[in-house]
Amino acid sequence: MTQNKINIQSYIKIENNEIVLNGTSVFKIEPTDFTDFAKQAYRNFEMQYPKFFKMDALSKLAFLGSELLLSPIVSTDPSDSELAKQKENNIALVLANKSSSLDTDVKYQESISDKENYFPSPAVFVYTLPNICLGEISIRHQLKSENSFFIFDAFNTDFMSNYSEILLNTNKAEKVLCGWAELFNDNYKAFLCIIDKEENEKYKNENINTLYHK
């Protein structure tokens, strides 16, 4: 399958204790576990969203990436009309990964495996689905848009491009935040990008596949 022409506006990669935004390293620390990395990144970018600490690791990963991409473009101006905000914030979310929510599923399973000490945690249970991270992003940015989470063996960039293009061409969304957010047992990699109908000179010769593998 050939990849259709889509217009990438910005992208972010998170892996190996580093965050790279639009090709530039914006945060890098000494090797540590993901929980610590996420906490330090949150503090570094002064995100001011205490609910972040209640999220599971997959949601934190997707949240960190989306936060840096969406914050500059999502309308938060209280003087904007509701209609203008809805149009401006009509950003579909389409993510995928390999391990689904297995990282949290395993933790939850451990919490209920001892019948003599059986205290399931509601706060862990609510994250035992991969698409919960999309809900967290939607709540944060007041998005009432299309969203989907897919599970693939590897990042299927053709699928992601085509799916996003359909959302844009059928006017289901003004922009699409799409990508890969994989995390299991402290191994993590996120690649997220914003695409829309407008061509961006900076990435006119790039597509999701080339940027993901850069």
Binding site: F119, S121, P122
Partner: peptide
């Protein structure tokens, strides 16, 4: 403290556990 409904369930677990 601004706790939410999931926090309320966790408080019930604390009482029990």
């Amino acid at each position: 403290l601004g706790l939410d409904s999931i926090d309320a369930l966790e408080l019930i677990v604390i009482l029990d556990k």
